[in-house]
């Protein structure tokens, strides 16, 4: 069986029994984030743009600040390197809207494929994602334009569809089978029809931004030299908001922090293609010195480069970069303009 119907309280109980850390969205908007559910705390019963915190869940497995190694140098030039542990408590993310859930597909392909990024790989193995169907799109949402929808389960291990006091739970991967077994025991099965019926309540509404996904990459490649990039980015202030808050952006910096002359640590911190020094070489040469070149990198990375390398867009339509950009730079507007659709 791949789907069951359980009372919401049962999910609460089963999760508590696992002893895993449970993270839930808390405090929508600017002050919000994914936070640990207190013992006995209630799981969220619905999700939508109105429950979406400004800070995406990526920081759980890709923290802004992560130690990569520590070092001790000897006075005669000896070097001792201590590896970092890259681990965390076993964790379940509960109640992520489909945009945030799908962000893990993008992060996994970027950070795990070929050579794995050790910090992410270590923690990702300990994370399970329980996505939830979204019941309210916001004015910045455009998930349906990027191949997702309010009911898509991409990136989820289990997917829940709230239905009154019940949840329909769908098993998407085997990663949370420990929990699944607890839920499944004695629960009523839900067949495909029941699932579709509940799922059907989470209908994509007509979103504010619409563009055709398929034609996009080709159109964007042609638009590489477009003068529009300058107009698009003339008011950009090159802050880190659109990328730090993006659930899929994953660029980082590596810097050393010396404790004293002979010891210290190496850190990985979030970085962004929007900072001018991101691509600045020591020789002063900088291939993306101009703001428009940096904005172009952000848009094309998401809608051209990542799709070419991994087969899906590196944008889940969550709308954060639009909502929180201090100067109203709107990635969907830019993509619509350059992607040559309505």
């Amino acid at each position: 069986m791949s789907a069951i119907r359980v009372p919401a309280s049962r999910m609460e109980k089963a999760l508590a029994e696992t002893g895993w850390r449970v993270m839930v969205p808390s405090g929508a908007g600017r002050k919000g984030g994914y936070v640990e559910l207190r013992a006995g705390g209630r799981l969220p019963r619905e999700c939508g743009d109105h429950t979406k915190p400004s800070t995406p869940p990526k920081g759980l497995v890709f923290p802004n600040n992560e130690e990569l190694l520590s070092y001790v140098l000897g006075v005669k030039g000896e070097i001792e390197v201590g590896p970092a542990s890259h681990t965390m408590a076993r964790t379940v993310l509960y109640g992520t809207p489909p945009c945030d859930t799908a962000s893990f597909r993008a992060l996994d392909s970027a950070l795990l494929k070929d050579m794995a990024e050790p910090g992410y790989a270590g923690k990702r193995g300990l994370l399970g994602v329980i996505g939830m169907a979204c019941s309210r799109a916001g004015r910045w949402c455009f998930c349906t334009s990027v191949g997702l929808s309010p009911r898509s389960n991409i990136g989820a291990d289990l997917m829940v569809y709230p239905d009154g006091d019940d949840l329909l739970v769908e098993r998407v991967s085997d990663r949370l089978d420990g929990l699944w077994k607890r839920l499944e025991a004695g629960a009523a099965g839900a067949d495909e029809k029941a699932l579709r019926a509940v799922e059907g309540k989470f209908v994509p509404r007509v979103l504010n931004f619409v563009f055709e996904a398929e034609k996009l990459a080709d159109a964007l490649e042609k638009a590489f030299g477009s003068p529009y990039w300058k107009e698009f980015s003339e008011r950009c202030v090159s802050c880190g908001i659109c990328t730090f808050l993006c659930p899929t952006c994953h660029c980082f910096d590596i810097t050393d922090v010396a404790k004293d002359e002979l010891s210290g640590k190496r850190l990985r911190t979030w970085d962004t293609c929007q900072f001018p020094e991101f691509t600045g070489e020591t020789s002063a040469h900088n291939p993306r010195k101009e703001r428009w070149a940096r904005q172009r990198q952000r848009v094309l990375h998401k809608f051209l480069y990542h799709p070419r390398n991994h087969g899906h867009m590196m944008c889940t339509g969550c709308g954060r970069c639009i909502r929180y950009c201090p100067v109203d730079i709107n990635i969907a507007e830019g993509v619509m303009r350059l992607g040559g659709s309505k």
Partner: peptide, 24 residues
Amino acid sequence: LERKMKCGFGKCGRCNIGEVYTCV
């Protein structure tokens, strides 16, 4: 080609030319 590099294995995102990571 020379590009600013930090990770060296295609993760940190700064050395790309289009979809190609110069470090890989």
